[in-house]
């Protein structure tokens, strides 16, 4: 089911994105224009246009850069993002990462997980030690992603993609997802999506 709906979304945007990517490739990198392009999917106010598209405002800089690099290399596959990353040079990726990491992470209005779901998620989290890498409030750091407040549907899809290998740009994460029982993922996604962590980050970055 998930994959079917994802493909449908992809097809709808493919035309738009190839047009944009095509017009930019030969010319100088222009941060402002690129940011406008990103906004067509990731949102002009940081709230993505649909639930399959992740929040990128306030994401960690190293992680952000590596994803663009991986989309360009093709080690992370996505028909929407690959053509967007293709014309970017390393310095352009750094510039985009530096720009977006400073934006305030948007509130998608996802409710905190109910206690029973949170308990199930917490048990999975403790077992694999997610916080050992994603840190105490799931804020991540460096090349490790922030997960707190990310779109629930996106989180679920990307965890399952790590698990079945269709997201192949981090075998370590794939291993951890394979070692996690299948019926924990819904709970994990709901729990992570519902975390509001601005208060811990001080000023919401």
């Amino acid at each position: 089911m998930l994959h079917v709906s994802r493909r449908a979304v992809c097809a709808a945007f493919l035309i738009g994105s190839t047009l944009f990517a095509g017009s930019g490739s030969a010319e100088e990198f222009n941060l402002e224009e690129k940011v406008k392009l990103c906004a067509t999917c990731h949102g002009a106010d940081g709230v993505p246009i649909n639930k399959q598209t992740p929040v990128i405002w306030g994401q960690n800089e190293g992680y952000f850069y590596l994803q663009l690099r991986d989309f360009k290399r093709g080690t992370r596959k996505n028909p929407l993002m690959e053509p967007i990353a293709a014309p970017l040079e390393k310095k352009d990726m750094y510039a985009l990462a530096a720009y977006f990491t400073k934006k305030k992470w948007p509130n998608l209005g996802q409710p905190p997980a109910p206690a029973s779901v949170a308990a199930k998620a917490d048990s999975a989290v403790r077992s694999v030690g997610c916080r050992g890498c994603h840190l105490d409030h799931f804020q991540g750091d460096g090349t490790t992603a922030r997960l707190a407040g990310q779109s629930r549907e996106y989180l679920l899809a990307t965890m399952l993609a790590f698990r079945d290998g269709s997201r192949g740009n981090n075998p370590g994460m794939s291993n951890l997802m394979s070692a996690t029982p299948e019926d924990d993922f819904e709970a994990l996604a709901e729990y992570l999506a519902g975390l509001q962590i601005d208060q811990y980050l001080g000023h919401g970055r």
Partner: peptide, 11 residues
């Protein structure tokens, strides 16, 4: 990238 060749899980 992270290359663990598996996972350790607390029981």
């Amino acid at each position: 990238k992270l290359w663990l060749g598996g996972a350790f899980k607390v029981i």
